[in-house]
């Protein structure tokens, strides 16, 4: 089972990477962790076999299954190009966005496993309860705090000061990092990497004045100190954010109180 067979649909044109418009359909197996408490109390694996172009996204494969084989298969998605953060899932054991993962890049010759992200309650199939995740984010005061009179024009910020927190502004709150963190799996109270990334984005913004308050929040027993620096989060982040580094910088700021 699971050997990919190549079927070339169209023989026209030279074969050169992206310029090749020919469709190569391969047969892939998606092994999906299903769960629907309306139907059964336990989750179980289900295999779906489909023909699809290896250049397509895992999201396209999920859609093809939902639309052509089993309408009850349930997952979240919206933008389909890695911007909205809806479709983080565990694909072949690693957290990724289904819309940013091409089949050809994850060895489609073997069954591809697809599971919900870990550490958050599964509600149905690949849909998990995101509330605790967003609550942790909201708890770190993820907004600019300033005092004094507002300037009439914009606040000035040097390009270097702006660059200081650029990396952490990219977060799309997909939860791939937090749900790949062993500490979070064991202790759902831990703020988790994404919330710390959210705090970092403001702590290191030269315009902000609430760095101390945020650091106090993160100094808590469920705060940054629980991080064991396993780098899972950095590996998982689809935005290429250096999550572990951001956490380290927050830890350092807690010790030195300089940021």
């Amino acid at each position: 089972m699971g050997t990919a067979t190549l079927e070339k649909n169209d023989s026209a044109g030279p074969v050169d990477s992206a310029e090749n418009s020919a469709t190569h359909l391969i047969t892939v197996v998606l092994r999906i962790r299903r769960f629907n408490p309306e139907v059964a109390e336990e989750s179980s694996w289900q295999d779906f076999t489909l023909k699809i172009d290896a250049k397509e996204r895992v999201l396209d494969a999920l859609h093809q299954i939902k639309w052509e084989q089993d309408g009850t298969l349930t997952f979240r998605r919206s933008c389909a190009h890695g911007i909205c953060g809806s479709d983080a899932m565990r694909i072949n054991g690693r957290n990724r966005l289904a819309c940013k993962t091409l089949l050809k890049d994850i060895n489609p010759e073997k069954p591809i496993t697809v599971e919900p992200i870990k550490g958050l309650a599964v509600l149905k199939d690949l849909v998990v309860d995101m509330e605790p995740f967003f609550q942790a984010y909201r708890d770190v005061m993820p907004f600019l705090v300033t005092s004094g009179n507002e300037p009439t024009r914009e606040r000035l910020q040097s390009a270097a000061d702006r660059e200081r927190f650029d990396d952490t502004t990219k977060c799309i709150l997909c939860a791939a990092c937090t749900s790949s963190c062993p500490v979070f799996w064991n202790d759902g109270q831990y703020f988790g990497p994404a919330a710390i990334v959210g705090a970092h984005r403001f702590i290191f913004d030269s315009r902000d004045e609430a760095g101390e308050q945020r650091l106090e929040i993160l100094n808590d027993r469920d705060g940054v100190w629980r991080c064991r620096t396993t780098f899972n989060c950095t590996d998982a982040c689809p935005r290429g954010i250096e999550v572990t580094k951001a956490i380290q910088e927050v830890k350092r700021a807690l010790i030195t109180r300089r940021f």
């Binding site: 507002e150 390009a159 502004t169 315009r207």
Partner: peptide
């Protein structure tokens, strides 16, 4: 900008 939006900056 006042709400915190990180615009790119001029020199």
């Amino acid at each position: 900008e006042k709400m915190g939006l990180p615009f790119n900056r001029t020199p």
